[in-house]
Design a binder for these strands. Structure first.
Length: 329
DNA sequence: AACCAGGCGCATGGTAGCGG
DNA sequence: CCGCTACCATGCGCCTGGTT
């Protein structure tokens, strides 16, 4: 089904009122501007608090910053069905016996119906989080994450998460991001194994009840997501089943292909220039790039006439990456 | 530097249309 | 029926560009 027709059909599904993404981003922008005050640029968040959601008095002893304003049983593959499709596909090429298939389809169908019945619109179901990582290099096998930043586009209290990560090795590419070995290899900077539970807990606090998380990054499919998957697997952990990923690089390609813009390339910098977004801080630091992408995403989706459901349709899961790898081998 | 997706050009195979 | 030509779909390899 073409994207255009899909959007049309979704908008006409009774009981499945899809907000236009522009409205969704509108709310986000309001929250965002309230958060940032009157400045047109995004102000770097300097205050440090230790703990999540205020209510929890347990103190963190790690340099993780947030701002101060304020197990599902279905497979990850089925998530997109539940959110995007008004009906579940009846045909399947999965090689299982017919009884199993029928049972599986029934479960998915029931889930979908429940989702639609229980959720008035997608924005009450999906949490959109823009994220970025800095690493010691390109190889996901040999290199390590040294900084991670996230921003929940709904805003509110603790809507950002940012921390350096101790890679327990040298940082050979400080000239790229300005993060040195001395900055990360010291007490107080969490190691990945310490950070993962905190990170997972943070994302959980941003989820809507029974909802899904759409994690957005530039070149997510080929860089950020494989890195995160590898780091988790290193400690025998998995991506939560309700996480979806969205890569803005193919969206940039789509925009460039459609013509009508002055987009010179599909890089984050080119998108930043196109939308005349000022960089507040040094580019190639995780939070700066997150803030940049947070401003690019609404404009990009507006230009591509995408709804939130359209974004979910373009999203992918951990298994999508694993599967495409296996297909190549 | 590693890895991946997309674009492009080229080769190949299947099919339809036409004339002898 | 056979041979030729044109067209289309598909697959492969190579190159480019994105990320730190």
């Amino acid at each position: 089904m073409k994207a255009g027709s899909m959007i049309f059909s979704l908008l006409h599904v009774p009981g499945c009122r899809i907000q236009s993404l522009t409205n969704f981003w509108g709310e986000t922008f309001n929250n965002f501007s309230n958060t940032c005050g009157n400045n047109s640029g995004i102000r770097r968040l300097s205050s440090r608090i230790y703990g999540l959601q205020g209510g929890n008095r347990k103190k963190w002893t790690r340099p993780i910053t947030t701002n101060t304003e304020g197990n599902r049983s279905t497979t990850s593959k089925s998530i997109k069905h539940e959110i995007v499709n008004e009906t579940i596909l009846a045909s399947s090429t999965v090689n299982v016996n017919k009884t199993q298939l029928a049972q599986f389809q029934e479960i998915e169908y029931c889930d979908l119906q429940q989702e639609i019945a229980q959720n008035k619109n997608l924005s009450s179901l999906v949490t959109v989080i823009v994220f970025d990582i800095e690493t010691t290099g390109f190889s996901r096998e040999n290199e390590r994450i040294i900084e991670i930043a996230l921003r929940d586009l709904q805003g509110g209290e603790n809507s950002t998460f940012q921390t350096l990560v101790n890679p327990q090795c040298k940082v050979p590419n400080s000239h790229i991001h300005g993060i040195t070995t001395q900055m990360v290899n010291k007490p107080g900077v969490p190691r990945m194994v310490d950070l993962i539970p905190i990170l997972l807990k943070y994302v959980r606090t941003r989820e809507k009840p029974g909802g899904y998380v759409l994690l957005v990054a530039h070149n997510a499919r080929c860089f950020d997501v494989p890195f995160i998957i590898n780091e988790l697997r290193r400690y025998s952990m998995e991506i939560p089943p309700n996480w979806l990923f969205l890569d803005t690089l193919p969206l940039a390609r789509e925009l460039m292909k459609s013509g009508g813009t002055e987009l010179s390339s599909t890089s984050l910098a080119a998108l930043r220039d196109l939308y005349r977004i000022k960089v507040d801080g040094s580019a190639h630091r995780a939070m700066v790039d997150v803030d940049t992408l947070s401003l690019i995403l609404p404009r990009l989706t507006f230009d591509l006439k995408l709804t939130l459901s359209g974004l979910v349709k373009k999203s992918f899961t951990e298994s999508d990456i694993t599967y495409s790898k296996k297909k190549k081998n």
